[in-house]
Design a protein around this nucleic acid. Structure first.
Lengths: 232, 232
DNA sequence: TGCGTTAATGACTACAGAGTCAGTAATATA
DNA sequence: TATATTACTGACTCTGTAGTCATTAACGCA
């Protein structure tokens, strides 16, 4: 039972509710962080704005001081995450020297350190799950983030093939195959039961890397053809 | 402007609305098929029951004749999908003879033929996206579907390692790495822009298979250690 | 200490969509 | 053809939540 206007005195219960604070600067990032966590956990549609606000320690009204709508908040969350991911990726790109295998290893583990193990990995799951509800966002991700990540791998593979360290491969398809375990790792972190690893992410990546480098080495024997060659 | 009870005559507009049909047997599967498609496209929370009903060619009331609630419908969709997936997997398991590489190829392409390229692949995306909203469903998937798929791969790898065809590897981690591109393929089919392949699924799988078999072969040289060995 | 500015609040409105049910019509049976 | 049965319908109710806004109180400044 709740009194409509009970106890109008300012400090009704001594320290029940912490005092209101004015922190205009800090709110937006706190709100997007809370939103990212909840969107990733529950999905966009199933997440209540009041829960986001509560997690950020403000009321729902405050949220609307900083974001026009739920959708605008979502887009900001994704945008921020992508910017962070891009910055991380570009940084380690440019001036690395060493074998193609070493560069590949740098890329895989660097991705994990700077994106995979941070909250930014949640953006990956969000794109995967919500892309058909937000085509523009998906397009943006595809054009900017994904293509840049692919470019890094492409350069690496080309260097390896050019130097004879790797055998010739179909570049684009190989890139897809290399990225898949990374994307799955990002998704698995937020999908309990779906793909829980038996080991640590680090040894998972290491196994991926070893299989990969071994698989890319110049091989002697020919490989089998696909079993159903008559598929269109 | 809509008349409250305009035109009570039976055939108001000639063939505007097709005649009502009674098809008790066919409804449930038609409804679950429609639900799967929409849940996969929009997610559980963002899908409206009226849209599902409309896609199945019935009214919302009819849906409630066959399913207790939206959640019950969701669980039936997943359950059905998993049963189908299991049946497909078990079938191809038992009496295959041949090299471990050939068996592995059978598993990858068989998965694609019977699950990956069918609507059942959508179940994979649903589990990935909704698992935290439906922990019991995720648990069931983990215990029954995923573990059985892993068992198939484990048997295959063990055979290859035992016969000396493959080098010794960490079984569980390798299984995770092998499955990741399959799961991504299933998810990518329903996530426009997220991971659209540059090639056909078949050549994607073939590249994955070739890298894999090559990577699993007995290798001569030692491989590099991970760059950040001091991680906890 | 008092005053003006504005960050923050939470009760409120509007609406969408899950779930209901009295009524309708397709089919079986006589 | 008349009657009984029941698959099906869609207008309705009710709940939950996105979005609003008049009010409150934190902070800067005189």
């Amino acid at each position: 039972m709740k009194h409509p206007s009970a106890r109008p005195l300012p400090d009704a219960s001594p320290d029940c509710r912490p005092p209101r604070r004015r922190r205009k600067e800090a709110r937006p990032s706190e709100l997007t962080a809370a939103a990212l966590a909840l969107f990733v956990e529950k999905g966009f549609a199933a997440t209540r704005l009041e829960d986001i606000a509560a997690r950020a320690g403000v009321s729902k009204g405050t949220l609307y001081l900083y974001f026009e709508s739920k959708e605008a908040l979502f887009k900001t969350v994704i945008e921020e995450g992508m910017v962070a991911a891009l910055a991380a990726a570009e940084q380690r790109l440019s001036d690395f020297q060493g074998s193609a295998a070493e560069l590949l290893q740098q890329l895989l583990f660097g991705w994990w350190e700077q994106i995979g193990r941070t909250p930014m990995a949640g953006v990956t799951k969000l794109i995967a799950c919500e892309s058909s509800n937000f085509p523009e966002v998906a397009q943006y991700y595809h054009d900017r983030v994904r293509s840049r990540g692919r470019a890094l791998l492409r350069t690496t593979l080309q260097r390896g093939v050019g130097s004879g360290e790797f055998r010739p491969v179909d570049l684009e398809t190989t890139i897809d195959v290399i990225m898949a375990p990374l994307l799955m790792l990002a998704i698995a972190r937020f999908s309990p039961g779906f793909c829980s690893l038996g080991t640590t992410p680090e040894s998972y990546l290491q196994t991926h890397f070893e299989l990969l480098v071994n698989g890319l080495r110049r091989s002697s024997g020919a490989l089998a053809k696909p079993p159903t060659g008559d598929r269109q």
